[in-house]
Measured scan of single mutants.
Amino acid sequence: RKEMTAACTPRRRIINLTSVLSLQEEINEQGHEVLREMLHNHSFVGCVNPQWALAQHQTKLYLLNTTKLSEELFYQILIYDFANFGVLRLSEPAPLFDLAMLALDSPESGWTEEDGPKEGLAEYIVEFLKKKAEMLADYFSLEIDEEGNLIGLPLLIDNYVPPLEGLPIFILRLATEVNWDEEKECFESLSKECAMFYSIRKQYISEESTLSGQQSEVPGSIPNSWKWTVEHIVYKALRSHILPPKHFTEDGNILQLANLPDLYKVFERC
């Protein structure tokens, strides 16, 4: 597991931080080997919608929660590849102030007048994250320049770009939802926020969305749709870069829909 690298990086740093090793061990302890084997050997059937997909393993048909699986995938990559990410360069710098204002204007932020003026909160978020810029760049390849612009994001899987519609809320939550006081809790909560931002979430995906850094293989055609990215990038990574937690067998994120021999018997009677 320590050699797990989802995106190509030129050289690998050895990380011996106790906090990170502890988080890696927790993933191992909570892992479910049968689910790992199923995901490793599954045959992708198709997307139901951005949140759900169908896959077959041996004779069984499964309904998989793409949102939760991708979130767990990105969390584990962030923990196992800690401080070893490439950088996704933004085509132009994104001012943190503008991103924070967009987030505060969104109902998702939960902002009320009692929280104070949005401009003041946005300025605080910019200054707060600028103070964390060195650590964010060093460990997470999340790059913020001296003017308070976001200029780079971590490359977690080759050819995958997170849904940038979720970027404003991500920046807001970096400042408000991460435990910045304790090292282990900081790395864990920061990785979880980043994983949620990178995950496939239906509120940020339309039929026209593209999450891939590449064009489709047909010359002159439109960019790959999110469905292509889910199948050929995300579920491909799920084959080798995730140890599913045991609770996925109990919380409805992986559901067995049918045993195909039983279905064949039904059709034979028709």
Rank of each mutant, 00 (worst) to 15 (best):
H247K: 14
E72Y: 06
H40F: 12
S91D: 14
D251N: 08
F248G: 02
I125Y: 08
G116S: 07
I254S: 02
V234L: 09
I14V: 11
I157Q: 03
P154A: 03
K131H: 07
E114N: 12
L64H: 00
Y124P: 09
V161A: 13
N149W: 09
E3T: 08
K227H: 04
D105E: 14
H32G: 13
Y204Q: 03
Y204A: 04
K192L: 06
P223R: 12
E25H: 11
Q203W: 04
F128S: 06
P163D: 05
M4R: 05
L142D: 01
S141A: 07
D138K: 05
Q214P: 10
E143G: 06
L255I: 08
E3M: 10
E37F: 07
L90H: 02
G252A: 14
R1Q: 12
P154T: 00
L39N: 02
L243N: 09
L96G: 00
A6P: 05
E193Q: 07
A103E: 03
K2L: 11
T249R: 12
K265H: 13
V20H: 03
L174I: 12
E250R: 06
Q51W: 01
G46L: 15
V218G: 14
S189W: 03
N41H: 12
I151A: 12
N259E: 13
F267P: 15
Y204I: 03
S221I: 14
V230M: 04
C186V: 03
D105S: 13
G120W: 12
Q215D: 15
V161N: 15
A55N: 01
A175Q: 05
K192G: 05
L64R: 01
L96H: 00
E123V: 12
D98Y: 11
V230R: 00
R1P: 13
N41V: 08
L260M: 12
F248C: 04
E92T: 10
L190T: 05
M38D: 01
T67P: 02
E127H: 14
K60W: 15
P261F: 05
T5A: 06
T210D: 08
L88V: 13
E231V: 02
E92A: 12
V218A: 12
Q30W: 06
R12Y: 13
V20I: 15
P245R: 06
K192H: 12
Y264D: 15
L164M: 15
E165I: 09
Q203Y: 06
E146T: 08
N159Q: 13
I171M: 11
E193N: 06
T229V: 12
Q30T: 13
L155P: 00
V266K: 15
L211D: 11
P261K: 12
G148L: 09
D145W: 00
I144S: 00
T18M: 08
T66F: 02
E134V: 08
L21F: 10
E268Y: 05
P245G: 10
I14Q: 07
R36A: 09
Y80C: 12
F170A: 00
K131I: 15
E113Q: 11
A7S: 08
W228I: 06
L99S: 07
L153H: 02
N16Q: 10
Y62W: 15
H241D: 07
E26D: 11
S19N: 05
N259G: 07
F97W: 11
H42T: 06
E26R: 07
G220M: 10
Y198H: 04
N149S: 09
I14G: 06
N149H: 13
P50C: 07
I222F: 12
G31C: 09
I15M: 07
D181P: 04
N149E: 08
S221V: 15
A94F: 15
I77R: 13
R269V: 05
L102G: 14
R13M: 05
E37L: 07
S216M: 14
E114P: 14
T67H: 05
L260Q: 10
K236L: 03
N179Q: 12
L155S: 10
P219K: 10
D262F: 12
C8M: 14
P117Y: 08
G120R: 10
S225E: 10
E25R: 09
D251Y: 04
A100D: 02
K132C: 02
F97Y: 14
D145K: 00
Q51F: 02
Q24L: 08
E143R: 07
E165G: 12
P162G: 02
E71G: 04
E26L: 05
L96M: 07
E268L: 04
S225A: 12
P95R: 09
C186M: 07
L167H: 01
L190V: 14
P95Q: 15
Y160W: 02
T18N: 09
S19Q: 03
L153C: 04
L211Q: 14
E268P: 11
E231P: 02
L255V: 10
T5E: 07
L63N: 00
E113G: 09
A83P: 04
V126C: 11
A175F: 13
R36M: 08
L260P: 10
E147N: 13
I254D: 01
Y124D: 13
L121T: 13
K227M: 05
S106E: 13
I171H: 00
T5H: 05
T112Y: 07
I77G: 01
E29A: 11
L142T: 05
G46V: 05
V34N: 13
S212A: 10
P162K: 02
L90T: 04
E127L: 11
I79N: 01
V234Q: 01
L104S: 03
T67I: 03
F267Q: 15
E3W: 08
L164Q: 09
T18L: 08
N159I: 03
K68L: 10
A237G: 06
E193A: 07
E185S: 10
A237Q: 07
I157D: 01
I15R: 04
E33M: 09
D251T: 09
E33Y: 08
D105I: 06
L21H: 08
W226F: 03
P168H: 05
C270A: 14
L243S: 10
S191Q: 02
I171L: 11
I171T: 06
R173N: 07
E183S: 04
T176M: 10
F85W: 00
S109Y: 11
Q203H: 12
T66L: 02
R269N: 11
R239W: 00
E193D: 02
L54T: 05
N16M: 10
A6F: 04
P244F: 01
T210E: 09
M4S: 11
L155K: 11
E92W: 07
A55W: 02
G46W: 14
S109W: 08
E127D: 10
S91C: 15
Y124R: 13
N49S: 13
N41E: 15
V230T: 12
T210H: 06
T229W: 03
S199T: 03
S191F: 07
P117K: 12
V230D: 02
K131A: 12
E114D: 14
D138T: 05
E146Q: 08
R89T: 15
E113I: 08
D145N: 11
P154C: 00
V48Q: 02
E188H: 12
S109Q: 11
L102V: 07
M4P: 06
V266D: 15
S191Y: 01
T112P: 04
K68I: 09
D181E: 12
P93I: 06
L121Q: 12
S216V: 14
A94M: 12
L104C: 07
E113S: 14
A103F: 03
E185G: 11
D251F: 04
W228A: 11
E25I: 05
